[in-house]
């Protein structure tokens, strides 16, 4: 693998770093309580929560670090942080 001249990089390859492995607590999204307000998507510092085809938010566990910000800010308490079994 040759070096990129001048220490440059093309977008996209930060994805090689699966930050989901850092997680201790895992957010579980409870569909029944979700009002699709979008707050979790807005506040996620990873940008790894996006709506599915039914407009319900779904986290990408490959990258979710389990910080809990989404659960804390969810106005309808539709996200629960659970200790992850590994």
């Amino acid at each position: 693998m040759a070096l990129n001249l001048g220490c440059t990089a093309k977008p996209g390859n930060a994805r090689d770093n699966k930050t989901g492995s850092w997680r201790v607590f895992k957010p579980e999204f409870i569909r029944e309580k979700c009002t699709q307000c979008g707050m979790c998507t807005i506040v996620c510092p990873e940008g790894c929560i996006s709506p599915d085809e039914d407009e319900f938010p779904v986290p990408d566990y490959d990258y979710c670090k389990g910080c809990g910000l989404c659960a804390e800010e969810c106005p309808s308490e539709a996200i629960e942080m659970k200790k992850e079994e590994k």
């Binding site: 977008p11 996209g12 390859n13 930060a14 994805r15 090689d16 770093n17 699966k18 930050t19 850092w22 510092p45 990873e46 940008g47 790894c48 996006s50 990408d60 490959d62 990258y63 670090k65 389990g66 910080c67 809990g68 910000l69």
Partner: peptide, 18 residues
């Protein structure tokens, strides 16, 4: 997500959680 186009500030960065 890996198949989706890149976010302008993308996943995989190494900031602390939160």
């Amino acid at each position: 997500m890996t198949d989706k186009p890149c976010n302008l500030f993308d996943v995989g960065h190494r900031a602390c959680g939160g």
